[in-house]
Design a protein around this nucleic acid. Structure first.
Lengths: 195, 195
DNA sequence: CTAATGTGAGTGAATATTCACACGCAAAGA
DNA sequence: TCTTTGCGTGTGAATATTCACTCACATTAG
């Protein structure tokens, strides 16, 4: 009931993501959106009630994308270290192929004003941390991950490392291969986690 | 020549920080600023050429604050693990006492449009990572930090962890003691780094 | 007197949103 | 089959609001 989305709505989201990718979330205005689609500005409101609904749809897109990466590993029964490695690899691949997601991550401050938006951001992040914590705890029980450290701390560290690395990538104007150098970081983290 | 700042300019920065703390960087407008000071809007321009200069001054404030925390540890000759621990502790104390710094951290996307601003943000972050990397390398040479991991990766991880933790704090509406719970995280990281 | 500081009114550009209206298509009624 | 009705979609103009910024003038401090 929530995923029913018309073609036009999808187009609006796609163009929104393109705008965000090109010049940041600040450039996502109704005017730019309409111009890019080849629309009158007013036509947008035939498809979304207001701009907040568009932003919520964007966050939904983000949520669906990252959530899937986590739940894929959550429902696997490989070695926890491998699952965490795959978490990194799939994230880096996703960010490489869909750079708009990177802009969305770091736009959270803009969502702070609207309660509905900031709630959604918090929700996504808490969910991801919870998934990661579950994976880690599981690995600790099976002796695949060192046991002398609280799982929630590890989750904070791992997610924080991932984000910081992506931040460095975006700050360098995407001047290196996220997937390749990310692999090295992923190995480093594996080394730290091993018992 | 850059640090000469008048009383009024300092007041403008202080009020800016207060506004940012209360309702995010979005609420930092000339109108709000003037109202809070008890000013006409036009009076602002007697003290700052334009809004970008105000934002630059805010970033400068941020830079001075964090830079000092890093360089304090850079110039110490304690055990590297202790230096890193102190880095955490001093950061958490600073953020607790000056919450506006937290809002500034996560406002980077807003600075993306203006080149001068985004450059400054990148500059600050690169400097901090460089300082941290130096501390880690030093510790590795002295055998205080495990040697099987690249120092720059560790720096990314440590800074990423710190930021993610502060993010969780701010997302929880500052509902826990950053200093107290941060101590635990800091210990976790020490455990990971020890050879 | 002079320079610094403050004022109030005003500007243009940008913002999201609303409104009356128009067009074309598809179903329903005669 | 022709006509009517309604719906989905798009338009262009207008809305109110907010934004950073300017300018001629007034006040004040040294």
């Amino acid at each position: 009931m929530s995923t029913e989305i018309t073609e036009r709505q999808q187009e609006i989201i796609n163009v929104s993501l393109a705008l965000i990718t090109e010049s940041g979330i600040q450039s996502l205005t109704i005017k730019n959106l309409a111009k890019r689609i080849g629309f009158a500005e007013s036509a947008i409101y035939r498809h979304y009630e207001n701009k907040i609904q568009i932003l919520l749809a964007i966050l939904d897109f983000f949520k669906r994308n990252t959530e899937q990466l986590f739940s894929n590993q959550l429902n696997s029964n490989e070695n926890a270290l491998v699952r965490i490695e795959k978490l990194f690899v799939t994230h880096f691949r996703k960010f490489t192929n869909t750079p708009s997601l990177v802009a969305v991550i770091f736009s959270e401050e803009i969502f702070r004003n609207e309660k509905e938006l900031s709630t959604k951001v918090a929700e996504i992040m808490n969910l991801n941390i919870a998934s990661l914590t579950t994976i880690i705890k599981d690995g600790q029980q099976k002796g695949e991950i060192r046991n002398d450290i609280e799982a929630s701390h590890l989750a904070t560290m791992i997610l924080g490392s991932l984000r910081m690395f992506v931040k460095q990538w975006s700050m360098s104007n995407y001047s290196f291969s996220l997937e390749k150098k990310g692999n090295e970081l992923s190995n480093t983290i594996k080394t730290l986690l091993v018992p």
